[in-house]
């Protein structure tokens, strides 16, 4: 390899990583998958948390305090959205419940479901 082609390769790699970095910015789901793939722990806040938190996974990978912390900053509507999206509660189950009760339910059910599925 000549110096010239070396330069060329580095420039191309830079471009590649830049594209990846930009894509990760724009696409948090991909970022999370990549970060998880290298074995790092990820936690989320705000609207991203609503989109990306998986209660069953969280029930296995973190302790109860960690689980509750992931929901602590969410609004009532967000908590309901997460529970519904992960099939942990129906609208009927959640009717009239406040955030603390919903988080209790989420924890109980996520632990149970994850235990059923975990080998």
């Amino acid at each position: 390899m000549t110096d010239e082609t070396d330069q060329d390769a580095f420039t191309k790699l830079d471009r590649f990583f830049e594209e990846l970095r930009l894509e990760m910015r724009a696409n948090p789901e991909l970022a999370v998958r990549l970060v998880k793939a290298i074995g790092a722990e990820v936690s989320f806040e705000g609207t991203l948390a609503v989109k990306l938190v998986n209660p069953r996974e969280l029930a296995i990978t973190s302790d109860e305090a960690g689980f509750r912390a992931a929901f602590a900053a969410m609004t009532l509507a967000d908590i309901k959205t997460v529970l519904k999206a992960h099939n942990l509660a129906s609208a009927v189950d959640m009717k009239g419940l406040q955030a603390p009760e919903l988080i209790d339910m989420a924890y109980r059910r996520a632990v149970a479901k994850a235990a059923e599925r975990n080998v």
């Binding site: 099939n87 942990l88 509660a89 129906s90 609208a91 009927v92 189950d93 059910r109 149970a112």
Partner: peptide, 18 residues
């Protein structure tokens, strides 16, 4: 798939919701 995955033994849903 979701209809057949009951959230918990004390979970109920309307027919429409399920």
């Amino acid at each position: 798939l979701t209809a057949m995955d009951r959230p918990a033994a004390d979970s109920y849903d309307t027919f429409r919701g399920k």
